[in-house]
Every structure is written in C-alpha cells, then in structure tokens.
Design a protein around this nucleic acid. Structure first.
Length: 944
RNA sequence: GCGGGGGUGCCCGAGCUGGUCAAAGGGGGCGGACUCAAGAUCCGCUGGCGUAGGCCUGCGUGGGUUCGAAGCCCACCCCCCGCACCA
C-alpha cells in the first residue's frame, strides 16, 4: 500500500495536477489550513486537521472547482528559540523526546541547538509527512514567516492597522525574569507553568514609622480590619513609593522595583520591631495594633496584611491562638442564613488544625461571601467625613462593594493596586522566580475597539461554521476580546515598522497571510526583491489603491506583473474555507476574523471556518508524560497513508475527538484489501444477475451517491465513510446472495459500473488506493480529477430499496419464530398475506394521517360492519402511525400488491433461512390451528 | 465564576426535526463453520422473561408536556475543554 502511495504521489507531482492557476472559465475554491509551527515533527494529532482540509479540497476538485490548497510555515515566536537553548544546555527530557519518540538521529539532535537549523529541519520533516500522506498542495507558493518578502507584507498590514487606529500604546504587566530581564511566558518556565498575573489592593495604614501597605484581595472588608499582621521573623524594608514612606518586606521592595520607577530604599527594620507600634485604619480612623503572625508570607505582595477576623479564617484563628479574642470583632458582610461572621463561625465549627485546613476554609468563605454576601451598614464604622459616601453601601453585593472601595481608596490616596504572580512560585528556566514587570509603552491591537468589534461581528454573521455550534464560541470570544499585546521584545519575526525594538508576535503576524499565498509564487517567479515590495505595492495588490504607473516606476516592477498579481489575488480571494483544530477558536481564528474585517472590504471577507477536535491514541490523550505520541511518518509506514487518512478523520464527527486505535486502523486496511481482491476478481462475474437484485443494487448505489454528496457538503466524513466503506460492502454481499438465491450469476457489467462509481466516492479519502484501482479498471486519467458521481432521487429506487427492506424484516420475524420453534427442526415457513382490501384501508389511513386526521375519521370512512373488523381497522391505523416517511410515500405512490412483492423475495428468504418459504393468501390459513391474523405489510408467518 | 461541549447497554460509540428504538457500528464474551491446530475469515447469539414475530425493564437523577420521550421543557448532580499577550 505504501509503495502504491509513493507511486501516485510521484505521478501527481510529475503532472503538476495540484498546481492551481487562475482560470476564469471555472469556479474557484480557495482552502487553507492553519500552517504549522515547526518546533517538532508532526505526530498523529497534527495529521487530522490537514487531512480534513485535503479530503474536502479533493472533494471540491472532483466537483469541478479550481481548487487552491497552499501551505506555509510559521517561524515567528519564541518557543523555537527556547527549545534550541534547551538542546544547547542538554535538557534531558527534550532530548529524550526527540531521540526516543521522534527517532531523530543523534548527529541531527546536536545541531538542533541552532534555532534556525531546528526550524528548517522540522519544516522539511513536516513537509515530507505532508507529501507522504498525500496532501494535494500547490507547493510553488510555500513560504516562511521570516522570509523578508513576507515581512514586507506584514509591515504593510501593521501600517494599515495603525492608520485605522486599531493599534494603541499602553502599559502592560508581564511575567519577567528578574535576572535576565526578559518576558517569561508559559514556554519559558519550568514545568510550562503559565504565570498568572493578578491584582492586589494595597491599603495604607499609617503609623509612626510610615505607611504599612496591607495587601488584600478583599478590600471591601477594610471596615472590619482591627489589626495588622506582620511576620516577626523577617526583615522589612523602609522604602519611598509615590513620595510616601512605606514599610514592605525585603522581597516586596525588590519586586516592586519592576513595577514602579519612583522607589527609594531608605533602610530596614525587623518584623518583631514593628509590633511595638500602632497603626491607623484609614477608613475607620481607629487606632489598631500591629501583631505578629508566622502565617504572613513575606514573598506574597507586601508581606503585610490586615486582620479581619469576622471574614478571614486565618485572622480569627490566630487571634484566638494569641488569646486576643477579647478584641472586638467587627462584621461587615452578611450572608443570608449564615450570619455575619462567617470566618469566625467556620473556624469554631470545623476546628482547623493547620495552614492547609485554614487555606481551604479561606477559599470557602471567599466563595460564599463573594457569591451570596451582602454589605451591612458600614457608614457607622467610618470616619465622620466618609459617612455620607458609605451610606449607600448597605445591601451591595461583595463584588460591587469591592470595586467601589478600591476606587475610593485610590481616589483619596489611601491605597493603590499592585500586580503579583497569583500561582507563585513560578520559576524561569534559568531558575529564578518570576516576578511581574510593567512594560511601558507596549503596543496593542485594540480588539476592544467598538467599531472594530462591530465589523468582526458582521463578518461572523455572514460566515458559515462547521460544526455550527462553534458560532456561539466565536460570538462570545468577540465580545470578550480586549486589547492584546501584539509585539514582544524577542523572538523570530518582523519588527514593528515604527518602533523596531519590538517584534510582532506570532498570533498577530498570522492573521491575513492567506492573502499572501495568492501571489507568493509570483514574487519568486519574477524574483522580486523585498525592497521592491513597498507599502504602495501591497496597497495596490491587496486593495487596488494607488496609481499603477507611479507604483511601477517607484518599485521597478513592470505594470504587467503588478496587474497579473492583482488579478491573481482577486481571482482567489475571498478565502472559501479555513480549517483548524478547535484549540484555535479563542485566539488565531478570532484574530483572523478581526484582521480580515479591519483590512479588507466586505466582499473579500472569508466565507467559512471548519474546526475539528483532537486525536486520542487508544482512547487516551497523547502526551509527553504518557509517551504515547506517535510520529505521523511512523504511522504512515506502519498503516499506509490511505488507512491513516481514514482513521484520523472518519471515526468521529468534526467537533468531537477522534480515537486512533491500532485495531481500527488495521481493520480499515483489511477492508480496503478485501475490496481490492474483490475488484481483481470482477472478471469472473459474467452473468446477467437477477432482475430485482440488479434494480435493487442500482437503487442502493444511487442512494449512497446522494447521501454521500450531502454528507461531504457538510464535511461529515464519519457518515460518508460509514456509507461507502461499510454499508456498500454489505450491499455487495447482499447483491451476490440475492443473485445466488435466484440461481443466477451476478451481473459483472453492473458490478463494474457500480465499482467505478464507488471508487470515485472513496477517492478523496483514499486517493492512492483509488488511483490504483482506477487504473486497474483500465482508465488512464487521474481519478483525482474525475467528476464526482451524481444521482437523481427517484421513487422507483425507493420502491426497490423498501421492498428489499420488507423482505429482510420478514426474514427477521421468521427467524425469531424459528428460534422459538419447539417441535424439532422446522421444515417450512408459510407466509399468509392479508386481503388486498386491507391494503386499501392502510393507504386510506396513511392519507388521513398525512392530513392530520384521526382514527375517528378512518372509522367514519370505512364504516366497519362488525366489531372484529373495527378492531382490525384500529390495528391498521396504529400500524400507519408508526410507518416511517419513506414507507408512507411508497404506499401512497404505488398500488401495492403485497403477494407479488413477497414473491419477489421468497427465494432470497428461503436462501437466508435455510428452509423453503411459501406464500399464500390469508384465506388459506387454518384459523382453528393458528390464532393469527394478517395485516397489510404484516403477514401471518407460520413455521412448520 | 464566565463561556462551550457532554453523561446511552459489559466497554467504546452512533442516534437527539418525538412513533419500525431493546436502541446502528465496533470491541469483548458465548456458540458454530473452516483448520491437524492456532490465527485470520465467515455465520448465529449477547437486558430480563416467554414452547410463535410477544411482554416487562431501560438511554445521569427527579419532575413535566404528549395518545406516545433516549430525543422536547424545568430543576438538580456529575464529567471534559477554554479564559489572553502564549504557539
């Protein structure tokens, strides 16, 4: 199988059948799939999306479209650099994966320390995999995102976004390595921990030493702060921040230098020393004690916290432990049915033993109060000058109060916000603990811009989504997206045109590159230099803006070439469909939508997005730790390309995860092999077949063509493969059985016709296999370019299909009875058909039902002469209710003679049952012996 | 918390515009054919009861709508995924 695949891949390449050029006489279809980031070879998981795109591309090609399916490689970003560093450092885990999972030779691994070598090596590796799995790509258009030609395009895009006001400057907190001074994302940390950045509110409690900035996530409880906790065993720094003298832990003093410029270190003081002083609550104005507690972590925020025993389990617990519970607890938040001192009550009730218990209680209190808590009247607790403001707080929910208190504190200069790593400690790969750095003058794409959002929403409303459920995801993401940093200080990529120290980050330089495919091969063909690809040049190619004479003379590119490129762009754009995995919905695909909406006119907006789920291996998620990552090329060697294509795309529908299992892949290989053998043996069938069987088979094939076309249009590969691989197989067997039962040889000519239709249906899924069969059948064309089969819906086909189904149901019923036959071995099945009159009643019943009528109407129409007949009519009515729609059509459309229909199938029935089958009219039934009645389509069956 | 997707028989997994649904298709198990034998392949059975195509129970839990619910509505429980400057 693999050698067949190689053979046809070479033939395709030789004939250049996937190189697509503009052709005004044909409808075009432009499809893309999210290009790969080459930091590893492809594994099975990558394969699914690309094959999905390819199957659909091949389908559309067979439907007569001029299909463009291009590919590029995404070099932009930091992970490749980080990985190359790790290789250079001899990172054991990474090298182990390269060596033992991806089977990369040792002499190559050592070279991977060079990031560019790594990218190129994996690019080539991925490209090989793509070719080996049979993707029908036009490789002339390949590029990488660090090609200078591509960079010129990105420069144009960013200038465009800048012009429209969609790029803004702002400050922005990031995870930061305090030693090497670089931003730290998930790929740069030990254990791939994403540094989560959150906000603490500092509340300024005055003291004789200066301000004690208590850090809290719950500023709304400040009214109940009756003390300040410090850790007596650590050293605190005296600093100046915002011109104010403050006390914070030494670590905090260090960390805050990454967030503020105006910090001075004035000295230090022992924590135990601090407890000799008193502090003043800035909101209540009350003097409160500074107390010692070892639970205060100097590494979190400022290392100073306020004590609110009513609402913080730690605070109450330590108050009690220090025998200070005589202090008056002040309550601020009321929870319906749970009192107003939740922390105190829970500590008393559950009696926590250690910090873990207290931590759990804290989370519990936080959750309950956050969701259900209401503010009490706090105006009586505050300084006289604040009373009026806080009167309105009564009844506020906790989140509302939190926001208001925070705003109040900041406005009055009584507090401020700082950032902290919430899931600390997170360590940089270099070993240092990550801190928060505020980057100033960071560049953002302003996805929060209301006009831009509106455009994106408009694009979404006209877009087709597969599967349709994902539309909701896009709508939600569009609402939720805000400013997004679009440049980093390091990594591969294109510098921002107006501020070159910033590199445009990877999710921002990959939003409209599909447009670049349309002309990338022309840049190469005409050897255009990056310096020629100016802003004006791109403006003309992409938007038709500007004076072509001027552009031609300024860039030195001939007018013909510029025009040709513009025309080619216009031929292929808009993009017809984009494929990707579902993980890209909240990021790449949403940015793709936003940027198209921003840059291009509405008629060039992309038309459809198709996303697929992940690939499981033997029912489990593939992961490094489970070591169950199967390199794609390895799978191709083991199972052959066509089998992998089917196993990756056709066992689940688009949205859900596919389970790649060895046994399923093998069974696909097996069934393809069986088909192959069957086709080899086709010449031995030289009979005429039986008439009914021939008609039935033709009908069944038509129906498969119709359903497959419908399913392919919806990218429902699972149903299609089910029909063409498995149902079709059983139809062939049934056909041969039907002929045999009738004493006839199967019709070879018909079988050949049927196989020719079938192999075309299979071609998008198993193109190599299909190509081979197609040529075995004597054709010299490429099946990849053949026309997709068509069929007409016909009532005659339906008739044959339903009659055969009816036969099978009689067989099934007979079999059931035979299984319960107790008088030895059954020797004959006798079928007694209901009176023809009753069939008319059934038809009447169906008619009445389809007009929304009832049993009553049927009775009125039929006017049964006695009770027995009335009973039968009732049963017929019930039968009619349960018939499926096709059967109803059949009954209404044909004057059915049930006896004739049955006789068409008696030979088949007795063949299947292994004993003779005879058909009689019900009048021949000896009612004294068998208490049975015959209804239309439900004949009486007697086994003897 | 917010948003999305789910919970089906021994297992995996379809069905979800209400009626041929005791519920496709696999897998596993049991029995049979073929074979010296094993494997592969093919055939039958695989919720319970039943000496004739039937009855009963049943698709997360509890209600409801309906002549009729795996499917529709409500409430609850549980599981998975995403939540940003990162590809």
């Amino acid at each position: 199988m693999t050698s067949i695949a190689e053979k046809w891949q070479k033939e395709w390449e030789k004939a250049k059948i996937f190189e697509a050029n503009p052709d005004r006489t044909r409808n075009k279809f432009f499809t893309t799939v999210a290009f790969p980031y080459p930091n590893s070879p492809f594994h099975l998981g990558h394969g699914r999306t690309y094959v999905t795109c390819d199957i659909y591309a091949r389908y559309m090609r067979m439907k007569g479209y001029n299909v463009l399916f291009p590919m590029g490689f995404h070099y932009t970003g930091t992970p490749i650099i980080a990985m190359a560093d790790d290789v250079a450092k001899g990172d054991k885990e990474l090298i182990d994966i390269f060596k033992n999972i991806y089977e990369i030779p040792d002499n190559v691994i050592s070279k991977l320390a060079d990031p560019l070598f790594m990218a190129n090596y994996f690019r080539d590796e991925i490209k090989k995999a793509m070719k080996e799995i049979g993707l029908s790509i036009d490789w002339r258009r390949e590029f990488t995102t660090i090609d200078p030609e591509f960079s010129s395009f990105i420069v144009w895009q960013f200038n465009k976004l800048q012009e429209k006001g969609y790029i803004v400057r702002d400050t922005h907190p990031v995870g930061w390595c305090p030693v090497h001074h670089i931003p730290v994302g998930m790929h740069d940390t030990k254990g791939d921990m994403e540094p989560e950045i959150g906000e603490f509110v500092l509340i300024y409690f005055n003291s004789d030493l200066g301000i004690l900035p208590a850090a809290t996530l719950r500023p709304e409880t400040v009214f109940g702060a009756i003390g300040i906790w410090v850790n007596p065993d650590v050293t605190y720094s005296i600093i100046e921040l915002d011109g104010k003298k403050m006390i914070v832990s030494e670590r905090a003093a260090f960390k805050l230098t990454f967030q503020f410029d105006n910090i001075k270190n004035l000295g230090s003081i022992k924590g135990s020393e601090l407890t000799k002083y008193k502090a003043v609550n800035p909101i209540t104005g009350k003097e409160i004690p500074i107390m010692a507690a070892d639970f205060v972590d100097p590494n979190v925020a400022t290392g100073i916290v306020m004590s609110v025993p009513a609402h913080a389990p730690f605070d109450y617990y330590y108050l009690k432990k220090n025998k200070q519970q005589d202090m008056q607890i002040v309550s601020v938040i009321q929870v319906e049915g749970q009192g107003d001192t939740l922390a105190k009550d829970l500590v008393e009730k559950t009696n926590p033993k250690n910090k873990d218990d207290l931590q759990k209680l804290t989370e519990q209190v936080y959750r309950i109060e956050y969701n259900k808590g209401k503010m009490k009247d706090v105006s009586s607790l505050v300084k006289p000058e604040f009373v009026n403001y806080f009167k309105s707080f009564i009844g506020l929910s906790v989140p509302e109060a939190r926001q208001k208190v925070t705003e109040f504190l900041i406005e009055k200069g009584l507090g401020r916000k700082i950032y902290e790593i919430m899931n600390r400690p997170v360590y940089c790969r270099c070993g240092n603990e990550v801190v928060v750095k505020i980057l100033k003058d960071q560049w953002f794409l302003d996805y929060g811009n209301p006009q831009w959002k509106a455009l994106a929403k408009k694009l979404i409303s006209n877009m087709k989504f597969i599967p349709p459920e994902i539309r909701k995801d896009f709508e939600f993401v569009t609402d939720w997206l805000q400013k997004r940093a679009c440049a980093r200080t390091r990594g591969l990529g294109t510098p921002l045109p107006w501020d070159k120290k910033w590199i445009i980050e990877s999710l921002s330089d990959s939003t409209i590159y599909m447009a670049y495919y349309t002309i990338s091969h022309k840049i190469r063909q005409y050897q255009l230099k990056p310096s020629q690809l100016t802003y004006d040049f791109w403006n003309y190619i992409m938007l038709g803006i500007g004076d072509i004479d001027k552009i031609s003379s300024e860039t030195g590119i001939s007018k013909e070439i510029i025009r040709e490129m513009r025309n080619e762009f216009l031929y292929w754009y808009p993009l017809d469909i984009r494929h990707s995995g579902k993980d890209l919905i909240p990021n790449h695909l949403s940015f793709f939508i936003f940027n198209h909406a921003a840059i291009f006119p509405e008629e060039l907006w992309p038309k459809a997005i198709a996303v697929n789920g992940f690939v499981l291996y033997e029912g489990k998620k593939m992961s490094k730790s489970l070591r169950n990552i199967i390199p794609l090329r390895k799978a191709l060697r083991i199972y052959s390309p066509d089998v992998v294509r089917i196993a990756l795309t056709s066992t689940a529908d688009m949205g859900s995860d596919v389970n790649f299992s060895d046994s399923y892949a093998k069974s696909v290989g097996e069934i393809l092999r069986r088909y192959y053998e069957f086709i080899k043996e086709l010449p031995k069938y030289d009979g005429e077949g039986s008439e009914f069987a021939n008609n039935w088979l033709k009908a069944q094939v038509s129906s498969i063509v119709l359903s497959s076309t419908k399913n392919m249009d919806n990218i429902d590969f699972r149903s299609t493969i089910n029909d063409i691989l498995y149902s079709f197989d059983s139809y062939l067997r049934e056909y041969i059985d039907m002929c045999k039962a009738d004493g006839k040889e199967p019709n070879g000519k018909l079988l050949r016709e049927v196989i020719e239709t079938w192999i075309k249906l299979l071609a998008p899924f198993a193109p190599h296999f299909a190509e081979e069969i197609w040529h075995e059948l004597g054709h010299t064309t490429f099946i990849s370019l053949e026309k997709w089969p068509t069929a007409e819906e016909s009532s005659e086909d339906l008739y044959y299909i339903l009659i055969h189904e009816y036969h099978k149901r009689i067989i099934e019923d007979s079999q059931k009875i035979i299984n319960y036959y107790y008088k030895g071995k059954p020797s004959i099945v006798k079928i007694y058909v209901a009176e023809q009159e009753l069939m008319k009643v059934l038809r009447e019943a169906v008619q009445i039902l389809s007009n929304g009528g009832t049993l009553k109407q049927l009775m009125e129409k039929e006017r049964p002469s006695d009770k027995k007949l009335a009973n039968i009519i009732r049963k017929i009515y019930e039968l009619a209710v349960e018939l499926d729609d096709n059967m109803k059509k059949l009954i209404l459309g044909y004057n059915i003679n049930e006896r004739e229909i049955l006789e068409l199938g008696t030979k088949y029935m007795s063949y299947k049952l292994g004993i003779p089958v005879e058909v009689y009219d019900v009048s021949k039934l000896d009612k004294s012996k068998y208490n049975k009645e015959a209804l239309p389509l439900k004949p009486a069956i007697i086994v003897e």
